[in-house]
Amino acid sequence: MSPVQRTVSRTLLVLVAMFAFAFALVPLYDVFCRVTGLNGKVDTTAQALVHEGVDESRYVTVQLVTRSGAGLPWRLEVEQRQLRMHPGQTVEVGFTFVNQGAAEQWGRAVPSVTPSQANRHLRKLSCFCFEEQRLAAGERLALPLVFQLDRDLPAEIHTVTLVYTLYPVASGEIARRAPEAQGGEA
């Protein structure tokens, strides 16, 4: 193996490594987001309740905002747009999906939290945003959001806004089937 061939093969190795590194950045970015709460990315799996008592001394306002993206004739209603809670407390809020379209369709609510520092302190016990939903034409589906804010939520955070945006899901992308037999006026 001549020195030129040695150099070339080593360089090719680095090339392949860097190309793989570019693709490895995608999952790495997700991990990095979850750890630092960068860009409001939120957990996509249910988490266990932590019993650490409620911090009665201060209130945190939680705003809930729902929006609909293009291409999905659905509406997401929420019982109350704004609520006050103590850090450490567990809260349940009722959401209702309504399919205003004329056909059955898959859709998903993509969550986003701001301020991003609050993201690490938000623990979701059950959320409709964990998987895609299937609604028949005109169907209404009520699903709860149960979440808890840590006691050690930084003091300077007084307001946390949780935004859900509805997006259509192409049938090919269905990751996990929504639990069956939940249709009708649940």
Binding site: S68, G69, A70, G71, P73, Q100, G101, A102, Y167
Partner: peptide, 22 residues
């Protein structure tokens, strides 16, 4: 007309046509 109502109100995903309900 139904198709136009749906397109204008709910938009078309993956294109520049937004959901004008917003």
């Amino acid at each position: 007309l139904g198709w136009q109502l749906d397109t204008v109100i709910n938009g078309v995903s993956g294109t520049a046509m937004p959901a004008f309900r917003n």
